[in-house]
Design a protein around this nucleic acid. Structure first.
Lengths: 345, 345
DNA sequence: TTGTACGCGTTATCAG
DNA sequence: CTGATAACGCGTACAA
């Protein structure tokens, strides 16, 4: 009775089961899987049928162990709630699709501990490489310190031209300049910059662009304000303080480091000072968030080509993997001005 | 000179290199890695040092091949742009963290082809199991048909109580009922439902809840409108047509299947009919999108506990993996009413 | 075109 | 506590 009883085998079938059922050797099954052209049609047919019967699923672990590589790469996102990162994911997937690769995602929430953890997880997984979105220079340093070279790694949304890594980012300095110039061109002269902690590279860069634009117009920046963070509530608080100064005629333009910040500012302006935007003060945000165009007063903003960023980043990564004599590059993409009501004249 | 020349070895070091450098056997290194208590302190020390020197990274493929299992599971999201799914991811990660597991994400964009592809990719990767967000019954059938049981799979945001799979969803029927009842309680009597294609299970369920609420109030539903989809532009088009009927007094309440839909409707109302929301017509949305509270007229809505959904889904999955005599369960979470300006009375 | 045999890097078992 | 060795499931020369 020992053998007669066909013991239930819930464990998924392996390649040898398929080979047995199809009446061929495992090598042939493997070929059928990876090099269909090397196998005769009828044989192929029997094998396919066997695979179907058994519900056979190749073991990726064994496969990549033997092959020495995976067919996917990792993408670590800073903030799933921010459409920029969603766009990046889309772009990266598009680039991957073109090569028949897959993208697996992970969410770091901008926390170093999680960035670290997923870089390592992906390294162990032996993905082809990993794309890491970053916005804090200190995180960059920490990760670079720990990172064992060998695993291709490209940084996204972060700029570093030391040549140690490929880097693709959107030129935030140019964006800040663009926003400020726009305000200047619409006649504003007393402009203030509002933006979160400068440890965030994008914020610091935007601020720098702001200063440069003012300087080349021969103007001095009004004291720049650094809220604790860049979301709507922060903007609202800042806006409250700003309102008085607008009424006193001390300020006629605001460059905010994010759309949510800008939205909060605009809201506070009308709530606390009955100040007209854009008549009394022009406000421009950053990011082209949905919140910006949905606002009661649609907010002018700087749009970032996230999709392209993801696409290019993936290409850099793929190049690094494929090309033996790959040289690290630091690519910068140009942001774009979008004019809406909040800065009209 | 052959050995004297320390040839550059860009290929990452393996466990045996570590063993050699530390002067122990690979078995001991393995123990040091996975069962630290089994190894003497000084030995441990030498090994750790060797690992550091070599920049050794365990090969996950070999590891899971030998161990037979991974320490992560997969989560396939329908729409990264929708905050509900982002919340789901957060909740799932929270549950995973509690067990020291990791979550890898994938984006299906709601496309069957991609849902399929990632279910398979994760299956090959031999993750512990996969969480799949779904909203189309036809996709469910297709995937169930292809899915080789053995890989634990739980459906999220989709309800099926046939007992073949674990399922966790938010009760959309109750949500539709909740929204409609709220409108009734604020005195509206001529209410219309606006919602996308009924192939989307959530939409169909919300519509059903709407009907039930009207029925128990002894009212007939006004002809329900099915826009082609559920975003803002669709709402705007529908709103345009609706405006006339509101002016003629035929309609005094709108239950929309999504906040974006509702936002579009409200916008069209004021643009084309100078109709006052909420005075002439009450409008309620669904999802508690940021767009809803950011709108010029903040929109009442139904909030969904996405975080909890992800958390519970992950728990179901983990239970399915760990418990031998696991029984599939279909869990429904309750949505919540959020009252804002658009339905005030 | 097909089969044999070995290796991929780890884990687990079982002696020492 | 440590070391040898057999799996793990598959890819791929190489030979037939």
């Amino acid at each position: 009775m020992s053998d007669a009883l066909p013991r239930e085998e819930p464990t998924s079938a392996g390649i040898k089961d398929v080979a047995a059922l199809a009446g061929v050797s495992i090598a042939t099954v493997s070929n059928a899987l990876n090099h269909r052209e090397r196998v005769a049609a009828p044989t192929l047919d029997r094998i396919d049928r066997a695979i179907g019967m058994l519900g056979y699923i190749p073991n990726g672990a064994a496969r990549s162990l033997a092959a020495g590589r995976t067919r996917s790469f990792g993408l670590i996102l800073s903030d799933l709630g921010n459409s920029l990162f969603v766009d990046i994911a889309r772009g990266a997937e598009r680039a991957a699709d073109e090569r028949g690769l897959s993208v697996v995602l992970a969410n770091s929430d901008g926390k170093l501990e999680r960035e670290d953890r997923y870089v390592e997880l992906f390294a162990e997984t032996r993905v082809r490489g990993v794309l890491l979105t970053l916005n804090d220079a200190s995180h960059f340093r920490a990760i670079v310190g720990r990172h064992a070279h060998g695993q291709p790694l490209v940084m996204l949304n972060f700029h570093d031209d030391s040549g140690r890594y490929c880097t693709a980012s959107i030129d935030n300095e140019a964006g800040g300049h663009l926003a400020t110039t726009h305000l200047l061109e619409t006649g504003r002269r007393r402009i203030v910059f509002v933006g979160g902690p400068d440890t965030l590279q994008p914020v610091a860069d935007r601020r720098r662009g702001f200063r440069r634009a003012l300087a080349s117009a021969g103007l001095d920046p009004i004291d720049e304000i650094a809220p604790t963070w860049v979301n709507r509530a922060d903007g609202w608080q800042v806006g409250r303080r700003l309102a008085e100064r607008v009424q006193r005629g001390e300020i006629d333009g605001v460059v905010a480091a994010s759309d949510l910040l800008a939205a909060g500012i605009v809201q506070a302006m009308s709530e606390f000072g009955a100040i007209s935007v854009p008549d009394s003060v022009g406000v421009i945000g950053y990011d082209n968030n949905q919140a910006a165009w949905d606002a009661p007063i649609p907010i002018s903003t700087i749009s970032q080509p996230g999709d392209e960023l993801g696409f290019i980043g993936a290409q850099l990564l793929i190049d690094e993997v494929d090309e033996p004599d790959h040289e690290h590059r630091a690519i910068r993409l140009a942001p774009e001005l979008i004019v809406r009501r909040s800065t009209e004249r």
